[in-house]
Design a protein around this nucleic acid. Sequence first.
DNA 1: CGCCCCATTGAAGGGTTTCAATTATCGTGG
DNA 2: CCACGATAATTGAAACCCTTCAATGGGGCG
Lengths: 234, 234
Amino acid sequence: MQDIRKPLRSSSYSISCELCSLGPICTPILLNDALLERKKAFPKDHVFVTKDTPCTHFYIVNTGALKTYVTDQDGNEQINGFYLPGDVIGLDSIYTKKYNNNLKALTDTLVCELHYDEFIALMDTNKQVRDLVFNLLSRDICNYQKLILFFSQKKADSRLAIFIYSLYSRYEQHGHSSLNIKLSMSRADIANYLGLTIETVSRIFSKFQELGILSVQGKYIFIKDLDALIKLGN
Amino acid sequence: MQDIRKPLRSSSYSISCELCSLGPICTPILLNDALLERKKAFPKDHVFVTKDTPCTHFYIVNTGALKTYVTDQDGNEQINGFYLPGDVIGLDSIYTKKYNNNLKALTDTLVCELHYDEFIALMDTNKQVRDLVFNLLSRDICNYQKLILFFSQKKADSRLAIFIYSLYSRYEQHGHSSLNIKLSMSRADIANYLGLTIETVSRIFSKFQELGILSVQGKYIFIKDLDALIKLGN
DNA sequence: CGCCCCATTGAAGGGTTTCAATTATCGTGG
DNA sequence: CCACGATAATTGAAACCCTTCAATGGGGCG
């Protein structure tokens, strides 16, 4: 079997400022150093935001991957989402003024930090910034609505198929189109997020491999039949 | 058995302007008649918004109940959510500029219509309006995040328990605290929304009734043990 | 009153989880 | 560099939950 680890381009799994969700409001000096701290580093497994603490920054992922999670009353971790380069984290805090999730680096990660107060204040005076935030919020809501339908309706096979496809799709949107994907999260994290068990995730990966839809080798996935993967998601 | 229909107060299942999500920006003349058309009536089963048409209005439910839904590629209806008095509908359209769902009255319904363009324009000049919309958007995102966790993690029992509790809770927030609930939607709608079958929903209602948690009589629910209902949701 | 639709209930089948055992992978220290 | 231990991932078998298919019961409306 082809070693799917060969074409690994982990160093390229970062986002250029042009393709970042902040887009044109960031690259010019519109956002100066008082508002934005660029490329701050967090090591793998570092929890750098704790739920219910006051919101001081929004984060934009530059390189690496993060997960947001809460812990339920039994102390179990419940993963809310994964964030990849270009994603903005923390917009839900506009309402609560505090973080609604814990935030943990899945790999060594670079983020841009946006100072909350200053940025919120900037929205009052700058229409371009304001419109951007409206669009980000509204877009988030659209995505979440789709996600709710997804989780309410889909069985295990579809969940995993769409999960893998969405990783592909999100990298593609940010200019890293490749059928080779390195999972930055463990099977346990995937299972937790999808509301399945580790065993089920593992079994479905094996099944997809038998069906010739993808090659699985630990954290490395090679999508052999993208159309079939999409079809499985329906 | 006590006839739980007796304390029906369908006429009171409307919201006063003071408790509406628009709050203080609406009751004063801040929103004039050019922006807001009050208490427009739609009959039961009327589809008054079609997906993908340009967004012309936001809607705020005054009396009655609505559902939003899309149809998948097989033509099946997939319910996205139910809207009760006080709820604002259409904020996700800020990004797409068109409606992302069909909108159908579950009962005879009164809504307030907010003209999209004029309202968006008002945000440019009025900070109070702007902040309100930011908060509504951000709050929606918080709610959706919780809903995603809910649907990704919860089994059938919990789904139905939380669904019933959330109806109770939403009426309570808007000043109609009562353990008697009239379901405005069919079992099919509930099942569709929760990602279950009609049969499963029916069986769980029966089970809850046997456990003494609630009385079920068609569309009328009486919550006999709220704590147990909440516990079942976990 | 009767019809139709909605809701309930039962039995069988399929999918997911649970429990248990094995295998692979990663990091560490010899 | 290899060996080792710990952790992560895979695989199998049994139990459980939910769906599917089928039949019955009940309420609303003409």
